[in-house]
Simulated assay, not measured.
Amino acid sequence: MKKLILTSLLLSCTVGFTSCSDNPAAVTENQSEAAIAKGSTNKVAGAPWVKQFEDTFDVGSNLSQWTKEQRADYNSWYCDYYSSVPTTQWRDGKQCLEIKTTKLSTYKYQSGFITSNYQFKPENNTEYMLSANIKLITMDGGTYKSFKDTYGAWPAFWSVQGNGWPTKGEIDIMEGYSFAPNSSRFTSNIFYGTSVGNNLLGNSAERNYPANFNVDGNNGWHLYESFWKMKDNVVTVTIKVDDITVATYTNSSVSNLNLNNFGPHSIIFNVNVGSKDSSFIDPNKINLFSTVMMWVDDVTVYKRPI
């Protein structure tokens, strides 16, 4: 998430980091091919990938692998996170995590923010693949509308070490910004600094998604991925959407970036509304109709030697 926060706020942010990963299990190439043959967007990785973490968000789940935040958003005056908001629901015939926004008053919105208790970071000569299938959708009363019809929504899928931000880094896989009637915008980003509360990169690592990315394509479902690897002590982060590379980051990509200093990351899904920067998102133009929702069909983390 784009950081516009004060050091005092950063220091107040703590995240539960008890590991709750599944028992690692290898997945065969045949299983991967079967998933592709069925037209599934689920990420099923073949050998030598080994599953480290998974949540399929089965309806009725208490989301025990996650911490549900209850606080104001650090980047916006207009959004508060409630722990009751993230739920599991049947959506599009899938069992999903649902994060749903609600307008509470003219300048206040209720939303959700969920952080995995599981953490990961590549050791030397290993690679991690973080994948999630996500749909962004809007409702106007009982009518579904496109995310692109809204103004001021800011959904995100990212990984971060919350303690001492940004000294252990942040990887933004997907950040969506809705600016109707102008085009919505989707980006990846990286944040890093050597002292708490001081991001040295600004937004110099922000990379726009391809111009032809259509959030409504494939019935709105898209596969978002982060590949984080260390080969002979050289760290590379690659961001993909629907198997298309959006960005590749190394230490030489951006001045002051040191990916080798990144710490173990947790996984985050959230939907922010508005910003503390009114020149970025005008609070007087915010329009989410009845609600904006993020649906997450599944999230997985795989690991392999390289």
Rank of each mutant, 00 (worst) to 15 (best):
F120M: 08
K229W: 01
V85L: 07
M1V: 11
W66K: 05
R185N: 10
T150V: 05
T67E: 12
T87G: 05
D216F: 05
V15C: 04
F120A: 05
T7R: 02
R91P: 02
P24H: 03
V273F: 01
T88N: 08
E206G: 06
G176E: 05
Q161V: 11
V235T: 12
Q65F: 03
W295R: 10
M230P: 00
T28S: 15
S146W: 00
S32K: 15
N256Y: 15
A25F: 08
L136T: 01
S184A: 14
N284E: 09
K229T: 09
C96H: 07
N30Q: 14
E29T: 11
C96K: 07
T106M: 02
K229G: 04
F280L: 13
S204H: 14
E225T: 12
N189R: 08
W90C: 05
W228F: 10
S83R: 09
K231V: 15
T41Q: 11
S159R: 01
D73A: 14
D92R: 07
Q65R: 11
K43H: 05
G217M: 05
S116Y: 04
Q52M: 15
K51V: 04
K145T: 00
V215Y: 01
N23T: 15
I281E: 09
I190C: 00
A180R: 01
M129D: 08
G220P: 02
D80H: 09
G46Q: 10
K108S: 08
R207C: 11
M1Q: 07
K100M: 02
D282E: 10
E33M: 10
Y224H: 13
M139Y: 13
L136A: 03
T87L: 03
Q31V: 13
K135L: 06
N133K: 12
L97R: 00
F157H: 06
M293K: 13
T87R: 07
I244N: 08
S116W: 06
N199F: 02
E123W: 01
G46P: 02
A211E: 14
F227A: 11
V271K: 00
T250G: 03
